[in-house]
Nucleic acid binder design. Structure first.
Lengths: 160, 160
DNA sequence: TTAAGGTAGATGCAAACGCATGAACTTCGA
DNA sequence: TCGAAGTTCATGCGTTTGCATCTACCTTAA
């Protein structure tokens, strides 16, 4: 007997959730989050990945926070001199967010240490092939769009 | 050129994180969390998976919350009649947690609807083989135990 | 047996969060 | 061109979270 497809989907999702929770707890327990919390690091990392300035709502896509919470988190990071907020000249409603020198430095410092822990946890548990599979699967899951009204795909973020 | 193993590990972890955030946002947007929030459902689901009563700290392993936060979340669920808390006869410090009939009913109701959304999202994005791979990979990641003793901190730059 | 140390859960308090809403600006349709 | 609708971010407010700490109980060893 074969598991139904939807059951398989749910069990694999639960497996992802369990892995996520277990590793997040493990990473959170590491003594590297004194200057920058994990959620703050998430924002700094997202900013560091982008070339130029990002808009707040773009940042919100990658971060699991409500818009007001993200707005205030960025405000706090700006007050601490890690993030720079400037009005967007092309859209009077928007902000352009970028890392300051201090923010980039903090991201690099914490990121380097965190990467060590991630590498230990993941590389110890998985083979190279499994890591490649996970990378591919994650991309597909993240790329899958919700059943939407507009079916026009954005060219640059097309699903691979 | 081949990616280093630790770099591959970090990129696959980031892929998992991105998928997790994207799908969580999508699920959170579904109109099924009126009676029970997502985090509350997480607790109800964990309780429903177990046979008998669980201890609070066991519950905490699967849920991404601090001990005080979990303690109060369970307290609120108990006040709403969804969870039953009784002192553990075998350990005077501990609690035995279990679902009430109403709690089991709420879990079934919300869980059924949620499973539909999960199945749609995951099964649409992945093949059967990929779902099986994800299930296996997640289990390995969650099962991997942290090293019993911390080794000497390594240089950050050497890893990537 | 008993004191020292460890573990499970609760509680005070400040920080952070989500929801609802507001203000400023852009976009769209007539 | 102009008003209505949509978008982007900020703010008020009640709720929830995390940190530090406390109490109660268990475990260990002398």
């Amino acid at each position: 007997m074969t598991r139904s497809r939807s059951r398989l989907a749910n069990e694999s999702w639960e497996s992802l959730l369990t892995a996520h929770a277990a590793l997040m707890k493990r990473f959170a327990a590491e003594p590297i989050w004194d200057e920058v919390s994990m959620r703050e690091y998430d924002v700094l990392y997202t900013l560091s990945k982008h070339e130029g300035p990002i808009r707040l709502f773009e940042l919100g896509r990658g971060v699991l926070l409500s818009q007001p919470a993200l707005s205030r988190l960025v405000e706090r990071l700006a007050e601490r001199g890690l993030v720079e907020r400037t009005p967007d000249p092309e859209d009077g409603r928007g902000l352009r967010l970028g890392l300051t020198a201090a923010g980039r430095e903090a991201q690099r410092l914490v990121g380097g240490r965190h990467a060590v822990d991630v590498a230990r946890a993941v590389a110890d548990a998985l083979t190279d092939e499994e890591m490649r599979q996970l990378e591919s699967i994650g991309r597909k899951l993240a790329g899958a769009r919700a059943p939407a009204q507009k079916s026009v795909p954005t060219s640059e973020e097309a699903v691979l």
